[in-house]
């Protein structure tokens, strides 16, 4: 016989292990845990309450992420759960894990630098490192890129364009 608390711990571990396999469809090297999209997992009256938060208001990946969480949990036989979307506090790139930042760079996307609180209207051309050759001789082409979370940069040394996961 397992005690109640052991059961809870094992159950929680199963949910976490399942969520660890769910990736962002637009940046498939990042799991939703790396991104900080999963805000909390609580067991309330034998139901796992999974709180998730969107990265950007218009992020088209959110519906897919929620569907993928359901598919993954269902496939592992976890049935007693509820997914809630919460807006407050608002998601920030500060919540991205160290592991996530490393994976981004290896994937060829410069990870977010500095903090979103340092936002300036003008003259914030911070030194950004090219994810390929590590040169800081880079320039911003556009603050808006192929997805909501990315800005478009160019390396002036290796001449390659690259995406920057911008501070948010």
């Amino acid at each position: 016989m397992q005690s109640g608390s052991t059961q809870l711990r094992v159950g929680r571990q199963r949910v976490m292990q399942a969520l660890e396999t769910v990736c962002d469809p637009e940046v498939p090297v990042l799991t939703i845990l790396d991104l900080g999209i999963v805000r909390s997992i609580e067991n309330v009256e034998d139901i796992w309450q999974i709180d998730i938060t969107p990265t950007y208001s218009g992020c088209p990946a959110m519906n897919m992420i929620e569907a993928n969480i359901r598919l993954t949990l269902d496939a592992r036989g976890i049935k007693n759960y509820r997914i809630n979307t919460v807006l407050e506090p608002a998601w920030t790139t500060d919540w991205m894990s160290e592991a996530g930042r490393k994976k981004l760079k290896e994937y060829g996307i410069a990870p977010p630098q500095a903090s979103p609180h340092q936002f300036k209207l003008f003259g914030d051309q911070q030194l950004l490192e090219c994810p390929r050759c590590e040169s800081t001789n880079t320039e911003c082409i556009s603050q808006f890129g192929s997805t909501s979370c990315k800005a478009l940069y160019r390396c002036l040394d290796c001449k390659e364009p690259f995406d920057y996961f911008k501070c948010h």
Binding site: P54, Y56, S57, L87, L121, F122, Q143, K166
Partner: peptide, 24 residues
């Protein structure tokens, strides 16, 4: 009002980038 606050907080950082774009 908590409802207004939540959506405003979510939107604000996005709008910072909008303002930067249009000002530039």
């Amino acid at each position: 009002d908590q409802d207004l606050r939540a959506v405003a907080q979510k939107s604000f950082k996005e709008v910072q980038y909008h303002l930067k774009w249009s000002s530039e």
